[in-house]
Amino acid sequence: MFGDFETRWGKVLFYVLITVFVLMTISPLLWMAKMALVSPAELDVYPPKILPESLDFTSFKTIFGDARFRSALVNTVVIAGFTTVICLSVGSIAAYALARLKFGLRGPVLSMILAVAFFPAVAIIAPLFLQFTNWGIVNTYQSMIIPDVLFALPLTVYLLVAYFRELPLDIEEAAKVDGASPMQAFFRVTLPLSIPGVVTTGLLCFIFAATEFLFANTFAFDSSTQPVTVIIPQFATQYRTDYGAQAAASMVVTIPLTILVLAFQRRIVSGLTAGAVK
């Protein structure tokens, strides 16, 4: 497809294409870093210069000096953290049953859980809004954690079923021969052995909940509960012409996510593609 890989020119062309692809992927990030780190005066220069000439932390000072931004960071971590813990608890036992135990409705149950991945979230915001208003939980963490758990569940179960199935059965069998119940086998053998898989799944759950916007934008009204995904777009109004502050805010969110993904990329890739080829 990319010329004959064996010839020298084919090889050069191939590497040029790969380099272009990598550059296209990271250049928006580099540009945001540049916007966030140059002095306000340099940022105003038009036409824009590609390379930065000054180093200045004004933009970061602006956003970290903003109490709304600081609390948004905390809110995101709390919402995503609780979602991850609940999802892993509910998801891991369900995944164990679906991976290891034989029961009649196993197929339909798995399909039902996975089908949620295709469910349009917007279809249920009105009923949930009415329900949450009745319960008095709009503008609380719960109002976002509850739907986030629902939509992170298919991914969780899908990944954990794949991980549990990869474990050799013999170890569990041996535990059962030694008199362990299926639950004991799960908690003492299967779960400890799949810690890497559980950690990767938890990470993806966390990323999913941290990137969620629709429910946060519907159920959170003020900075006491709004996560970064809601607060940062609002900066476009608040810091109307302070583009550096907007760029700095987006860096604060995307840099940790990039580091997490780079650190776990091998596991994430193998996890996400585990079922796609079966």
Binding site: T211, V230, F235
Partner: peptide
Amino acid sequence: RATALAPWAFPPAIAAVMWRL
């Protein structure tokens, strides 16, 4: 492969803010 995956983990709302800028 690793750099390719990074933008996938970004919140769409934040990606939109970045590109809007």
